[in-house]
Lab assay of single mutants.
Amino acid sequence: IRLYEREDYRGQMIEFTEDCSCLQDRFRFNEIHSLNVLEGSWVLYELSNYRGRQYLLMPGDYRRYQDWGATNARVGSLRRV
């Protein structure tokens, strides 16, 4: 999964292949505005340590956080399923 700091895949990008319990420890931002799921399925959590609202993401492109059903861009952790 590739996470981007801004909409439309702009700004700083980070790629994950494994679970991350605290996004801010690995990426200086806690807001993700766009992403690409390259393979497999992922769950994004609004808070760190896999807490808060959850969003199940299938392979595909998500140009804005609204595309995955979120009401804001906050992402605290993520897990591959």
Rank of each mutant, 00 (worst) to 15 (best):
E7Q: 09
L44N: 00
R53H: 13
P59V: 05
V75I: 03
S41E: 13
V75C: 06
S41M: 02
W42L: 03
R53P: 11
R10G: 09
S77Q: 00
I14S: 14
E5L: 14
Y65P: 12
E15Y: 04
I14V: 09
T71Q: 04
R28I: 11
G76P: 00
Y65N: 14
L44C: 05
M13A: 13
E18W: 04
Q54L: 04
N30K: 14
G69I: 06
G40T: 07
S48E: 15
R64M: 05
R53G: 10
E39Q: 06
E18V: 09
Y65Q: 08
E39A: 13
Y65H: 14
R64H: 03
L3S: 14
L57I: 03
N36Q: 12
R64G: 09
N30M: 07
L23A: 13
D25Y: 03
R80S: 12
R64N: 15
V75R: 00
R28P: 08
Q54E: 10
R10N: 13
F27L: 05
R74F: 08
R63H: 15
S34V: 00
C20D: 14
I32G: 13
N72H: 06
R64D: 15
F29P: 13
N72E: 11
N36M: 05
W68I: 14
M58D: 11
N36C: 07
R51H: 04
D8T: 09
E39D: 07
A70W: 11
Y65R: 12
F27C: 08
G52H: 01
N36H: 06
R51K: 07
E18G: 05
H33V: 11
N30S: 13
E46A: 06
D19T: 11
R10D: 04
S21E: 13
R74V: 11
Y9F: 14
S34Y: 00
G11Q: 01
N49G: 06
E15H: 03
Y62V: 12
G69Y: 11
S21H: 05
L38D: 13
L56P: 14
G40V: 11
L35W: 01
E15A: 06
I32M: 11
Y45P: 01
M13R: 06
D8S: 08
T71Y: 03
F16N: 14
R79K: 07
R51P: 00
V37Q: 02
Y50P: 00
W42K: 00
L44M: 09
S34I: 00
G60R: 07
C20I: 07
Y65T: 06
T17I: 13
Q54Y: 04
V43I: 01
R28L: 07
I1V: 05
R51A: 08
H33C: 09
L23P: 08
I14W: 05
T71D: 09
R28M: 13
P59W: 06
F16C: 08
L38E: 06
A73M: 15
G69W: 12
C22Y: 09
S41K: 12
C22Q: 08
V37D: 15
I32Y: 15
N72C: 06
H33A: 11
N49P: 03
L56C: 12
C20H: 05
Y4F: 14
A73Y: 10
M13N: 07
R28D: 14
L47K: 02
M13D: 11
G69P: 03
Q12F: 03
D8C: 12
G40F: 08
L78A: 10
E5Y: 15
Y4H: 15
R51N: 15
S41Y: 06
F29C: 11
F16T: 05
M58I: 07
R63N: 06
E39W: 03
E18K: 05
F27M: 04
C20E: 14
F27E: 13
M58L: 10
C22H: 06
R28N: 01
S41C: 01
R10L: 06
S41L: 02
V37K: 01
C22G: 10
S21R: 08
E18M: 09
G40K: 03
L57E: 00
Y9A: 11
F16Y: 01
V43F: 04
S34H: 01
A70M: 14
L44A: 10
F29V: 06
D25Q: 07
N36T: 04
A70L: 12
Q66R: 06
L47Y: 03
Q12M: 13
I1C: 10
M58N: 11
Y9V: 01
N49F: 04
R63I: 14
A73L: 13
R6M: 07
G60W: 04
Y4N: 11
I32R: 06
F27D: 10
R53F: 02
S77H: 01
R2D: 02
R28V: 15
F27H: 02
Y45S: 03
Y62S: 10
E7M: 08
W68A: 12
G52V: 00
W68V: 13
V75W: 04
L38H: 11
E39G: 13
R51G: 13
F16L: 13
E46N: 02
R64V: 07
T17S: 08
S21D: 12
L23W: 02
L56R: 13
E5F: 10
G52Q: 01
Y55P: 00
V75H: 01
N49I: 01
D61T: 08
D8I: 04
Y55G: 10
T71L: 12
R28S: 11
N72R: 11
H33Q: 12
N30R: 11
R53A: 13
N30Q: 08
L3M: 04
Q24D: 07
Q66V: 07
G40S: 08
S48F: 04
L3V: 13
F27S: 10
Y62F: 04
Y55C: 06
Y62R: 15
C20A: 12
D25R: 07
G76S: 08
D19V: 05
Y4C: 15
R53E: 07
N36Y: 05
N72V: 13
H33N: 06
Q12C: 02
E15N: 15
E39S: 08
A70F: 12
R6I: 07
V43L: 05
Q24M: 15
W68C: 11
A73W: 14
V75N: 03
S34L: 00
Y9D: 06
I1P: 00
L44T: 08
E18S: 12
T71E: 02
G60S: 13
R10Q: 06
R10F: 11
C22T: 12
L47T: 04
R79W: 02
N30F: 02
R51S: 07
L35H: 01
E15V: 04
R74E: 14
T71A: 11
E15D: 03
Y50A: 01
L38F: 06
S48T: 04
L23M: 15
M13I: 08
P59G: 13
E18F: 06
Q66G: 11
R26H: 10
L35E: 00
L57Q: 03
E46W: 00
G69N: 09
Y9P: 01
R2L: 03
E46L: 01
R74S: 09
E31C: 03
D61P: 07
C22I: 04
W68M: 15
S48A: 05
C22E: 12
L23E: 02
E18L: 09
S77C: 02
G60F: 03
G11R: 01
E18Q: 12
R26G: 08
E31H: 12
D25A: 10
T17E: 05
C22N: 04
G60Q: 09
E46P: 03
H33S: 14
S34C: 09
R28W: 10
R64W: 14
L47R: 12
Y50R: 03
E7R: 07
R63A: 11
L47V: 04
E46K: 02
L23Y: 15
E15T: 08
F16M: 04
T17K: 06
F27P: 14
F29Q: 12
R2M: 11
S21G: 07
N36K: 08
T71K: 09
Q54F: 04
S21W: 05
R6D: 03
Q66S: 10
V81L: 13
E31Q: 14
P59N: 08
E46C: 03
E31A: 10
S41F: 01
R2T: 05
R53Y: 11
A70V: 12
A70Y: 08
G69K: 15
D25F: 07
R6H: 04
W42G: 00
T71P: 07
G52K: 00
N30D: 10
L38T: 07
R79C: 02
G69L: 14
W68F: 15
F27Y: 07
M13G: 10
